[in-house]
Structures are given as C-alpha cells and as structure tokens.
C-alpha cells in the first residue's frame, strides 16, 4: 500500500463572477489556486484558515460537489476528478461528508431511520433484517438511543443532530470522511462530546478524516497533520508538533497568537495583523500575505514563494529563513 488514500495535485478552482455581453466572465474568484496534499489511510489531516481561504472549496471539490478548474484528485491511485457520473457512484460511497450546520443538513421531513437507510439502500449495502441491524449499530456508534430511529430531526438538539449527520456519513462505510466545520456550530460542552466521538470512531474504524476548520485549538487536539491555508494556497503544512512547536510561516504564527487563551494570567502581547484578507478576485502579486505580514520585504512583494521543505514532512511557503522576530512576541 504505497499510495496514499487521497492525493490532491495542483488543485485549482476558479469561480467566474458576472458576465460581459459576449458571455465571458467579468472577473474570476481564485478560490483555490494550486494546492497539493495527501491523506493517508486512517489519518487525520486538518485544513485550517479563515473565511474565504478556500478550505471548504477543497472539500467540495474532493466530493465532486463542484467541478475543478485544473489539477487532479486521486483516490487510491485512480483519478476521480474526470470520471463520469456513473463511475463516480462507487467512489461516493468511499468519501462521505459531515457539514457544519446540523439544522440545514438534515431533511426535516425524513425520519432518522430513513436518513440513515438512504445511503445503505443507495449503495446496496444491506436489506431487510441486515438493514435493521445496521441501523441499530449506527445509532449505538454515535451514542443515540435506538428507539429514537422513528423521530424527526426537529425533535433533537443541535449536538444530537450532528450525531445523526455523523451516523449518516458512517452508514456508507466510507474510507474518508470530510468534516467541514463539523463542530463549529456547537456549544462548548456539546462540542467536546462530538469531538471525543469523532476521535473514538476514527480510531475504532480506522477512518481517515479531512477536518476542515477555522479553530486552531480544536485542530491541534484532533489531528496528526495540519495544512494552513491563506487565500487559496497552502502556506504551511506539517506534523502537529512541527506546526505548533516550530511554525515557519508568519501567518501561522499570527493565527495562533490571535486565538484568545482561556487563561487570564498569561495575557500576552500578541501579533495583531493589520487589515483584512485581500480579495480572492484579484490576489496581490508576490507573496499573498505580504500586505499583512510584519516581516515582509522587497522580495515578498515581487516573487511568490513556493513551499520549501524545512524538515521531513514540514513545508512552508515563505522567503524568510528566520521568522523568530514574530515568535518572540507570541509564544504559545
């Protein structure tokens, strides 16, 4: 098994905006602009970044919910970005998704039983007695009472609905689950329950997770590897210890230091970034982060940095070898 489970190569997704009279798009949103990473079997990779960095688009592209502009998505050594809808069907079973909002991602008119049975029937995984047994199993896995299979989504709390969403993803027996901000909408105490549940399921079932989130603390808690995104690009990727112990991109440092720490005794000086994220319609030349980077120099304004290897498995897209001027102010 030398292939990774999922390999994404130079993924590009542009969205056209508006139309001129001749039908050409007026401008283009560079949602994802040349992104490569892989996910191994049974591994958790996080995509982390702020709104508009393209992290959700990556998830949607892998699920083929959007067509990609360029690049390749390879599952188990086979390209899935250019195959027909018919041959996509078995691939869909292997990649499932849990969405952010447990209120809008469940059909309010379907009973839990039907929500969970739909993928099982669709992929012909079980019928009759077997189906019934499987439904019970799924409810046990997500720690919901079996006798609530006949209920409708509105009878459940937010956390319970998210468990139903997870059970639906598990129903297809996938290899990879994409969690798109799957715990972001939940309250603190319920979030901890769902995070623990996801971790247990991942370990017990050997699932791979692509965990898309803006919350660095949850990401650190959940995952083995982390990719930090900014304006459609990966700016840094590495093992958890590398990213949190030795961040090499100024944006990674800024993100960590921006997070309020639940400890009033370590109110620290933080690196506050000036300005907003630039528009992905017209990304800045050179390094995309240069306008907000306190360390940016002349090179950064002109030349776009490529990802450079810093240590085995740790890559950062920054011209600077030494960003300790930032970390001095913002120790985690």
């Amino acid at each position: 098994m030398s292939n990774p489970l999922l390999q994404v190569n130079d993924l590009v997704k542009h969205y056209p905006v508006g139309r001129t009279l001749s039908g050409r798009p007026k401008s283009v949103v560079h949602a994802v602009d040349g992104l490569s990473f892989h996910v191994d079997r049974g591994e958790t990779l996080s995509l982390v970044g702020e709104s508009g960095c393209g992290k959700s688009t990556v998830g949607r592209a892998i699920l083929r919910l959007v067509d990609i502009t360029m690049g390749q998505i390879v599952l188990d050594g086979r390209r899935i970005d250019d195959i027909s809808q018919a041959s996509l069907h078995p691939v869909r079973r292997r990649i499932q998704v849990v969405f952010q909002d447990p209120f809008s991602s469940l059909n309010p008119r379907m009973r839990v039983r039907d929500i969970l049975a739909e993928p099982i029937r669709n992929f012909r995984l079980a019928t009759g007695q077997d189906l019934e047994r499987r439904l019970g199993e799924l409810m046990d896995m997500v720690q919901l009472p079996r006798d609530s299979l006949g209920r409708l989504p509105h009878e459940f709390s937010g956390g319970q609905r998210q468990r139903i969403g997870i059970a639906r993803a598990l129903a297809a027996k996938p290899d990879l689950i994409i969690c798109d901000e799957a715990v972001s909408a939940l309250d603190v105490s319920v979030k901890a329950q769902v995070v623990n549940l996801l971790q247990d399921l991942q370990r017990d079932l050997g699932l791979a997770l692509l965990f898309i989130s803006h919350d660095l603390a949850i990401v650190e808690h959940m995952t083995q590897r982390i990719a930090v995104m900014y304006l459609g690009k990966i700016v840094e990727i590495g093992e958890r210890r590398q990213i949190f112990g030795d961040p090499r991109h100024p944006y990674t440092v800024a993100l960590m230091s921006a997070l309020p720490t639940p400890d009033p005794e370590t109110r620290r000086r933080r690196v506050t970034l000036v300005g907003d994220v630039p528009s992905p319609i017209d990304p800045p030349p050179g390094c995309r982060f240069h306008g907000r980077c306190p360390l940016a120099g002349e090179t950064c304004r002109r030349i776009e940095p490529d990802l450079r290897q810093i240590a085995p498995g740790h890559w950062a897209a920054c011209h600077l070898d030494d960003i300790s001027a930032m970390t001095r102010d913002a120790t985690v």
Binding site: A192, A217, E220, F244, P262
Partner: peptide, 10 residues
Amino acid sequence: GAIPRLGSSL
C-alpha cells in the same frame, strides 16, 4: 475542561 488548549500537543 471541555475546551482544548493551544499548545497541548507540545
């Protein structure tokens, strides 16, 4: 107890 702390992996 329910909130993860940054730097916990280190």
